[in-house]
């Protein structure tokens, strides 16, 4: 099976396609002759320019889905297109909340399996093969689909670089939602935005993260202060997000954000596999932890064996003194 057409789920946030979607579109250009996108929401026409710049020729627009969650309507629209013989050879999804929902629904609708946690995609023997980092990134599995039907891949953020190719605005064509029965009955009744200042966690040049070693919720304030002094973003391990110290949006790791900053400063984080997966590709890693056997030290370029409650305040003081 040769790869002629790839569809990429173009998720839109704040009026722009999300970076991970642009990364997937960029990679899809090198794998298929035709790259098209699937989008939903009231503003698809407004993102056709950016999508076109990155190589998308056509945007299949599911349209405004109102208060529905996107999983069911978007998957149903794509499944209908595939059933009508108008589907692509492969569909790439960003590993976001909605991307995973849509991919899961689509997989069951088409009776096609799904490959998730993809960190690399290449063409091989006329088909697509995907790379997956397993066991905390210590091993790389290469996999492919067998049988008929489009390949469904869910790809992690920052697996590729997003680069425009200078194309014209993509054409927008409607993609109709099929009958969804009882499945599409969940509704969003309110949306809450948790404000945060400074650079975005997944775009910051410096990320300062805190973990359970901080001991208590109040100690997280020094992580935020240190991040601020370094013009970076504060992050967190799953342990303290689960404990309710900071919102989920701060989480770095398997179930949180994947970050690739110039410097990642891990404070009081032991380095569980779940966390390492999200940050081990940082260009430089500094770890501060009092347990010299903590796994975080196996990936740290600079490891400080010490108490975060002593080292971090001194660091903050020294940075303030520099002005």
């Amino acid at each position: 099976m040769s790869i002629e057409t790839i569809w990429v789920l173009a998720e839109v946030a704040d009026g722009k396609p999300i970076t991970t979607s642009l990364e997937l579109i960029t990679q899809a250009r090198s794998l298929a002759g035709t790259v098209e996108a699937v989008a939903w929401g009231p503003g698809t026409a407004d993102v056709a320019g950016t999508l076109g710049e990155h190589g998308v020729t056509t945007v299949h627009d599911v349209g405004d889905i109102g208060d529905a969650l996107p999983g069911v309507p978007v998957a149903s629209a794509v499944a209908a297109a595939v059933a009508a013989g108008k589907g692509p050879d492969a569909i790439l999804f960003p590993a976001t909340y909605d991307g995973r929902d849509i991919a899961g629904r689509l997989s069951a609708k088409l009776d096609r399996p799904v490959l998730t946690n993809v960190v690399g995609l290449s063409a091989d023997d006329g088909g697509l093969v995907s790379q997956h980092a397993i066991f905390g990134g210590t091993q790389v599995v290469t996999a492919r689909f067998t049988g008929e039907g489009p390949g469904i891949f869910v790809v992690r953020a920052k697996s590729f670089a997003a680069e425009p190719s200078g194309g014209a605005a993509a054409a927008v064509v409607p993609l109709a939602v099929d009958d969804t029965g009882a499945t599409n009955t969940a509704v969003v009744v309110a949306r809450h935005v948790e404000e945060r200042s400074g650079p975005k966690l997944d775009e910051a040049d410096v990320v300062v993260s805190g973990g359970r070693g901080l001991g208590e919720k109040d100690s997280y304030a020094m992580i935020e202060e240190l991040a601020g002094l370094l013009k970076g973003a504060p992050g967190a391990s799953r342990a303290i997000v689960d404990a309710g110290w900071v919102p989920y949006a701060y989480q770095v790791g398997q179930t949180g954000k994947t970050v690739k900053p110039t410097v990642y400063l891990a404070c009081g984080i032991s380095g569980a596999t779940q966390h390492l997966v999200g940050m081990k590709n940082a260009k430089n890693i500094i770890a501060i932890n009092k347990d010299q056997d903590a796994p975080i030290f196996t990936v740290a370029d600079l490891g400080i064996v010490g108490d975060v409650h002593k080292v971090v305040p001194k660091l903050i003081e020294a940075l303030k003194a520099r002005g």
């Binding site: 490959l115 290469t142 996999a143 500094i286 030290f297 740290a300 600079l302 064996v305 080292v311 660091l315």
Partner: peptide, 28 residues
Amino acid sequence: QQIISVVEAEARSAGEVVVDEGDAHERV
């Protein structure tokens, strides 16, 4: 779906380790 291969990932090696004796922040 099938797995074609499994290989060891390029390991990230541990770097310098400093035991804090009150001045480790200077090294940072």
